[in-house]
């Protein structure tokens, strides 16, 4: 080996990002195709499926046919639909008689606030518990963390919702039982219980992964070396453990966001919140397929894109990794 060092990787990074970007496009294309084509998976004709449970006027039926281009060849329909989607046009809701995009846009803020609040809770409590458990491994505080985490992991958000409502709203009257409130503070107040209900399973996940990742790093030699140089334990944890342990947490963050988005459907329904989750459930119930299609597509796309971004973020925390190399 030459004395000149092992050498840095040449700028493969750029090519790798482009390659991954193409993969992302392909995945998005295929998933959008699947979501679109699902209309054709049902028995019977698409138009019958779309108007089931209603008795629309001939004009409405014609409008629906036009929206989906049902009298055109399949692939043309798909391209037509996809073009519309890329322009933000998801067609019209069968139930609400308005543009799907407007409908979704109006309900997005509630879900966004809910997910954001939950994410904060998850990160603060989950990371905190995981770090605490790892630093006091084997002692009673660690055991307590493990027990609590095992329970949280098994509590579905709707069960948590019921218990929280029953105890804090009905019995103690501390929180409202439904609705998203008006204005930032009121909204925070209204979203507290829902956010807690939503967070529990994910707190368990984050805590478990953080703890095990930290325990792994704590056992590594560079930590021992740092201690051997006389650094305080707290300093060593701060400088040599935390950042090194971050990888697995970054890996699941994509899963986390997807899980939050999907579980919001349950929590929003339980608490009567007007977000896109409850919209999805209501649309399935009311056979409003254009809305269902749009929402499924949006959530899947968000999931795929977030995972892509997470992959790119790896080199920021681990200099050994070139973008796209990250272990899944």
């Amino acid at each position: 080996m030459s004395l000149d060092g092992a050498g840095v990787a040449p700028p493969r990074t750029a090519t790798f990002v482009v390659w991954r970007l193409l993969g992302l496009m392909l995945t998005l294309l295929v998933t959008s195709f699947l979501v679109f084509a699902s209309l054709y998976v049902v028995p019977g004709s698409p138009i019958d499926f779309l108007i089931q449970g209603r008795s629309p006027s001939p004009a409405t039926i014609a409008a629906i046919k036009k929206q989906y281009g049902l009298d055109q060849p399949f692939l043309v329909q798909y391209v037509h639909w996809l073009a519309g989607v890329l322009h933000g046009n998801f067609g019209r809701s069968l139930e609400y008689r308005e543009n799907v995009s407007t409908l979704i846009a109006s309900r997005l803020p509630t879900t966004f606030s809910l997910v954001l609040l939950s994410a904060v809770i998850i990160l603060v409590v989950g990371l905190g518990a995981g770090i605490l458990g790892a630093l006091r491994a084997g002692r009673s505080s660690d055991k307590a963390v493990l027990v609590v985490v095992t329970f949280f992991a098994a509590i579905p958000s709707f069960a948590a919702a019921i218990v929280l409502i029953s105890f804090f709203s009905v019995r103690l009257g501390l929180f409202p039982t439904f609705g998203a409130g008006q204005g930032p503070v009121d909204r925070l107040y209204h979203l507290t219980l829902p956010a807690i209900a939503l967070s529990l399973t994910f707190i368990a996940l984050v805590a478990r992964i953080t703890r095990s990742s930290m325990l792994d790093v704590l056992s590594r030699e560079h930590v021992e070396v740092a201690l051997s140089r006389g650094l305080a334990r707290r300093t060593v944890v701060r400088r040599h453990v935390l950042r090194n342990a971050g990888g697995p947490i970054l890996t699941i963050s994509g899963l986390l966001v997807a899980g939050l988005l999907v579980s919001s459907a349950v929590v929003e329904t339980a608490f009567g919140l007007d977000g896109i989750g409850s919209l999805l459930v209501a649309s399935v119930d009311k056979l409003d397929f254009p809305v269902v299609q749009a929402l499924v597509l949006l959530v899947v796309a968000a999931f795929v894109i977030i995972n892509f971004v997470v992959d790119l973020a790896y080199p920021l925390i681990d200099p050994r990794v070139k973008a796209g190399d990250a272990a899944r």
Binding site: G23, L26, T27, V30, T31, L34, V35, S38, L39, V41, V42, F49, A258, G259, V262, S263, A265, L280, V281, S283, V284, L287, F289, V292, V296, V299, V300, F303, V304
Partner: peptide, 22 residues
């Protein structure tokens, strides 16, 4: 590649879509 696509669909979401269809 197929698995990658499948990974993009969270379980509950796929179930909801399927209920919407069937």
């Amino acid at each position: 590649r197929v698995l990658d696509i499948l990974f993009a669909f969270p379980g509950l979401l796929l179930a909801i879509l399927v209920v919407a269809l069937f």
